[in-house]
Every structure is written in C-alpha cells, then in structure tokens.
Design a protein around this nucleic acid. Structure first.
Lengths: 192, 192
DNA sequence: GCATCTATTCCTACTAGTAGGTAGTCTAAG
DNA sequence: CTTAGACTACCTACTAGTAGGAATAGATGC
C-alpha cells in the first residue's frame, strides 16, 4: 500500500548520513539521489529531524531483526559475534554504508536535536545489551571466556568495533578493521 | 609578538569541532565565542579549511609534545598508556573537549576537504605509531604482555579508546569510558 | 458507463535565515 | 606613514521549510 518513495528517501538519507553525518547532507542531496524535487521530500518527512529519526528507527529495527535471526539460527554465540563483525567487514570493503550511523551520529551528539539523540542512545543500549547477553550465552555454552564482567566486556567489544570503523575510515584501509576485529574475537576464545 | 587573537580563534574552533564536528559550527559561532566579528576571523584564517587545519596542526603538536614528555619522564611504558587514558578521562569528566577531534572528524571524513583529511590521517598514524612503540618498550621492560603483534595491539588500543569516547558521549556516562579503558589497560598486564 | 469526489504524490515558486567569503574603511602602534 | 587588526556592509550560494497548484488513482453515486 505504502509507496516506496518514502523508503527510497529514507535509504538515501541513511547513505548520506553514513558518508557525511547529520550536518553534512541536505534535502537537496537527498532529492538528487532519489530523483525527485526537494519539496516532495517534505511531503513524506516534514522535517529533517523526522527523516533522520525514521532512518534510525529503521536501522534499529533491521538490527533487532538481524540479532534475533542470529540468535535463532546460529548455535554458537561466539559465531554470532563473528558474523556480526563479518557483516561490517563486508560493508567496509564494499564501501556500502561502511560505518554504523549511530556511532557516527554519537560523535556529533551534543549538537543534535533531542529526538535524534534519543534514537542514538537506544541503538547503543540495544547493541550493548545484545552483545552482553551473547557473551553470557557464550560463557555458558563454553565457546567464550570472559576476563571481566559481561557488562564491561560487552561495552569494550562495542567500543573496539566502532573505533575500528573510525580507524578504517581515517586510514582508508579496510584491513585495519579486519585485524582489529579479529583480535577482539580471538581474545574471547577460552583456549587463551 | 603575534597577537593571541589567532590563538583564541583556533582554540574556540577546537572546542566547537569537539562539540559539533566540521559542519556543525560556523564562523558566526567562533566570532561569538571569541567576541569579535565574523569578518575579523578571515583576517587570521582566510578560510574555514585553514582554521580547521590550524587547529589540527596545533592539536598534533600538543600530542607530540605530551608523548615526548611521557617518554622522557615516565619509566614504565604501561604507566605512560595509563596516563594517556587518564588524560582523556579527565577531559570527559570535566566536559572539556571530551573527545579527540581527529577521531570525530574521521567520522565525517568522506565529506571533508582534502587538507583536513590529510591532517586527520597524520594524527591517526602518529598516535598508532606512538602506542605501538610504547607497547614494544613495555614488552621489553616487562610490564606489558602482547597477545598479538605490536601493530595489531596498538591499532586495537587506539580503536577501543576512540570507541569508548563515542560510547561515553552517546550514553552520557563518563563511567563507561573509565571501565572500558581500565579493561583495555588491564588486558596488557603480563600477570594474566 | 460515466461523472465526480477525495486523497496522495509530486511539482514550481517562493520565503526567511544562514553559510563562507569579500571590499573597503577606520584606528592605533611602531 | 605604513601596517596589523579590527570594523561595517555587503555578496552569492545554499539551508530547511511553505504555499498552492497539477496530475494521478480509487472509490462512490447515478
């Protein structure tokens, strides 16, 4: 029923946020990508805040779905984290949304409108929560060894993945993401 | 001899970049903070790119000086890294430039003018290089145990610190930076 | 079958405000 | 009497957002 123009606009916005951040793109940029006029975007998303919030809501929904998918289809929790990392590695190598938009927006956070701030926070909370429970599952399952509390290990894992995205972007080398994230996964193995 | 207005402008720019990123601040913002008119800034820094590059050059000079200071005054390499992390912890707790501007700008990198890109890259290279040689020194000194290569461990350390800055900003809790960085340092100890 | 009503979607044309940057002037100090 | 540093006044380009009209398509009444 719903036209997919709104979807196209939201996806274009996601791409542009991933490339340039909140202040780095305009309605004109979105209009050019989608192939419609600037004013038409306002019909679907009255304000820029609405558009970015919509992109973040969709982004989180996708993440939740992917996490649930991993939880139900992959037995080994360590393998789930490996697949999570692998997903980002592919995005970075293909230059396809090669960074988490919530992580990117968190950098600009103090300047962002409150509704966007709230969505970014929700993403961080959900992601850290999923990693934490996955780490706990892995400890029980026997494939993961936790040096510190699950909470601290989860926050560290999220941080190192986000930091690795920044380094890969800064240095222009996807390899640096690969080696950092491999090391982060390796460190969770009980054989150490 | 040189007026300190230029310094004030550069410092105001640094603060604003740390708060909002490259596209998130304007000459008008800088003018208001410094207490001069917009046009006067152009006298000292002809373009916004010049201003931001100057801020990054100064930022890196300060980092190099601080690193050399640590190298000469602190015997234990692990302690040097601890002090590096502590510096950022204080910045975050006092909300005083609570994020590395190079890390922040790396998020917006694809949209940044080339001269700024280059400065951001230089920062990442120098920082990773310093951490790497500090890790090697620590391994020789005996206070640091390296699980992987010094290169990978250094990149991981840089990434986790940057990621922790993002998490602290996103969640609004300095504590999360503290616990992540403590865990990162702890992991380097040979007692494990 | 055909006209009409309604809602959706996109358009052109516009607004007020802000962006970075420029031209030219005034002032004070060496 | 030149120069540095600040100013007023302005420019063009772009920002998010608005007003109102044209085209489309689906449902309804006769």
């Amino acid at each position: 029923m719903s036209s997919n123009t709104a979807d196209k606009i939201r996806e274009a916005a996601h791409d542009l946020i991933a490339a340039r951040g909140y202040f780095g793109f305009s309605y004109a940029d979105v209009a050019e990508v989608v192939g419609i006029r600037k004013a038409s975007i306002h019909h679907h998303f009255p304000s820029k805040v609405d558009l970015v919030v919509a992109a973040l809501v969709q982004y989180r929904a996708d993440m939740v779905a992917a996490a649930k998918g991993l939880d139900s289809k992959v037995v080994d929790p360590l393998q789930r984290l490996k697949l999570y990392v692998q997903h980002w590695e592919e995005c970075i190598r293909n230059s396809n949304r090669p960074i988490c938009i919530a992580a990117l927006l968190s950098a600009e956070l103090p300047a962002l409108p409150d509704p966007i701030k709230a969505e970014v926070q929700l993403h961080f909370r959900y992601l850290a929560g999923w990693v934490k429970s996955t780490l706990r599952d892995g400890a029980k399952y026997g494939s993961i060894h936790l040096e510190h509390s699950a909470e601290v290990e989860a926050q560290s894992f999220v941080a190192v993945v986000h930091g690795a995205m920044l380094s890969a972007r800064a240095l222009g080398t996807p390899d640096v993401f690969t080696s950092i994230s491999k090391a982060a996964l390796d460190r969770l193995r009980p054989s150490n």
